[in-house]
Every structure is written in C-alpha cells, then in structure tokens.
C-alpha cells in the first residue's frame, strides 16, 4: 500500500473504536414506547413496522423517538414512495429538533413468532448502513395479560459474520461452535423519561389502588392464548421434522456416495496393481468427471435453526403462562376457602 502504516484514516479509527465498546443497554423513552404500542395495537393482528430514532452513546443505544411505516405493499412504485415517506418524515422531525439518527426499527409480532429469515435480512440491510442497530419487538397479544412484552434484539456478531459470507454450512458452524441459541442476542431495556413527563405522570396518576394491568394480570382465563401457542408450536414441530427429514435424506445420500467412492477406489487400485505388473503407467486415483465424486449440496441449516429458536420461544411462553396460571389458581383456591 502507498499509505504509510503509521497514518490511519478516520475510517480506520472509527472502525476500531466501534469494536471497542459492545452494545450493552437499550434505553427507550416512554414516548417511544407509547408510540410503538399505539401503532402496533391499532393495526393488530396485522403486523406493522416502524423506524427508531435516537442516539448511540458509548455502550448505550438511546431510542428517543420513532415513527411508523405505512403498511407495505408489493408494488415497486409504492415502495419508492415508501422511501420518500421515510425521508420526508425524518426531515420533518428534524425540523422540530427530534434526533435525526436511525438506530433500528420496531415491529409487532403475534405470540412471539418473529424469528424469520425476513427479520435477519432486514437486520443485515440495516447493519450495512448503521454499525449499531437494534430491533424492538412488541407483542400486542401478550400485553392483554398485563405484561409489557417489549424486547430488544440484535443478531450476534459471529452469526452475522457467517451469514454475510454465506458460510452457513455444518462444518463452519461446528468450527465456530455456533448453535441455534446464538443467533439472536437479547439486550436489556431501560426506560427513561424526561423530568417534565415524570412530573405530569405523577400528577395524573389515578388515585385508585388497582390499575388496569392488575385486572389484566389476574384474569383467570388463559386458554385462548395457550391454545394458539400450542397450535403454533405444533406447526413448528411439523416444519422441524420436515427439515430433519431433509437432513436424513442428505446424510443417507452422502453415505451412499462415500460407499460408492470407496468401491470405485478399490477397483481402480486393483486395476493399477495389474497395470503395474504388466509394466504400464498407473491410472490416477481420482476421476473428477465421474458423477459419484460430485459433492452433494448440503441443505441449508438456517431454517432449522430458526425453527428451533421459534419452538424454544413458544416453550418459554407456555412455561411462563402456565407458571402464572398456577399462582392464579392457588390464589383462587385460597379465596374460595376463606
């Protein structure tokens, strides 16, 4: 290189400093939370997305505002319009001094079924432009039970590296020791509010000792939620067994091919021995033109990884709700006995 090693460009400096502090906490303003919830809830059960605005400060990613995207259409013309909308919105918000820096996006989900290839692709797209971005996932179906189902996710670095280089094969995965748990990283969420809002909320808080979320939480009927959860779980299990069949098929083919290769090799060696005895040149021990040496393509592992993730997510949800139901049932029992 012509550039001397001692002089580092700004870009290089920036890159090295990015690496230095990993993202630890996502700090969201109450305003952004309310906006996300409003948007997701109004359009539930259809899934919606929007953009998060904020600042990247050290190991904290501050989300101070957000705006919704219109429901996406397939048409390309409209897609261009969507991009315009985004620019226009950001310009407008900058005029009233809102942080004009994209830090990621939010999306709603149904029963936590968000682990899809699309999510990963969107993430990679964002990642190209913004070094540190985050995806906030909100589940309106869960919030009916008095839970603030808000999650901040990012893809793990090791996964991104593999995905970017398209190295998603069994060998590489083993090398990196990457299992399905390591695809997504959940980042703890902090909430912050300005002092002004805090003052207003303290004033406006109702005097009643019970709030809406208490009613929601003590609701005994969890059956519809559980039913759908199990339904989704069963669907995922079907998908997973399909994936596993693909793998079995692949391995069966692989071992058959290996057996064929072995037998071919033995034959060739025997032939070479006889040729040697006859004083002729030995034939090469490999024949690329032979179809049995053609490598069989390995089925993609990403799908099965994502399905596995999804299943474990459903299991967690079932466990959580079942645990709560137990408490509620025993509470009810105690009340009845009194």
């Amino acid at each position: 290189m012509a550039q001397p090693a001692a002089v580092r460009s700004f870009l290089q400096v920036a890159v090295t400093e990015e690496v230095a502090s990993p993202l630890r906490v996502v700090q969201i303003e109450g305003l952004a939370i309310l906006k996300i919830i409003k948007h997701c809830k109004e359009f539930s059960p259809s899934l919606v997305t929007g953009q998060l605005l904020g600042l990247d400060v050290g190991s904290v990613l501050e989300v101070t505002n957000c705006f919704p995207f219109p429901i996406r259409e397939e048409d390309e013309e409209i897609e261009a319009e969507g991009a315009n909308y985004q620019l226009e919105m950001m310009r407008c918000l900058r005029e009233v001094n809102v942080d004009n820096n994209t830090v990621g996006w939010y999306q709603s989900t149904l029963l936590g079924s968000f682990q899809t290839v699309e999510l990963i692709e969107t993430f990679m797209n964002y990642q190209e432009n913004i070094k540190r971005c985050v995806c906030i996932i909100y589940d309106p179906s869960k919030s009916n039970q008095g839970v603030l189902a808000l999650k901040a996710l990012k893809l793990s670095d090791s996964f991104m590296e593999l995905y970017r280089n398209n190295n998603f094969t069994g060998e590489k995965l083993r090398e990196k020791n990457l299992s399905w748990v390591d695809i997504f990283e959940e980042i703890p969420i902090k909430v912050s509010n300005s002092a002004l809002i805090s003052a207003f909320m303290t004033e406006l808080e109702a005097d009643t000792p019970v709030a809406q979320c208490d009613y929601d939480r003590l609701q005994l009927s969890t059956n519809p939620f559980m039913e759908r959860n199990v339904e989704f779980l069963i669907e995922c299990m079907d998908d997973l067994s399909m994936e596993q069949q693909k793998f079995q098929y692949y391995y069966r083919n692989l071992s058959r091919q290996q057996a064929q290769q072995q037998s071919w090799l033995q034959k060739r060696r025997a032939e070479n021995m006889s040729r040697k005895a006859a004083g002729e040149e030995p034939l090469p021990e490999e024949d690329p033109s032979n179809p049995i040496f053609k490598p069989i393509p390995e089925p993609p592992r990403l799908d099965s990884f994502l399905i596995t993730n999804q299943i474990s997510n459903y299991c967690n949800q079932i466990n959580g709700v079942a645990g709560q139901s137990f408490s509620k049932l025993y509470l009810m029992k105690a009340l009845q006995e009194d």
């Binding site: 919830i37 409003k38 008095g146 603030l148 912050s192 300005s194 805090s198 979320c213 929601d216």
Partner: peptide, 14 residues
C-alpha cells in the same frame, strides 16, 4: 393505556 403499561415505568425518570 398508561395503566396497561404501568405507571411505574412511565412515572420515573429512569
């Protein structure tokens, strides 16, 4: 709506 989220989350500055 605010109650659904919980005033504890919305009331404090952090």
């Amino acid at each position: 709506e605010a109650e659904r989220i919980g005033f504890d989350v919305l009331k404090k500055t952090a």
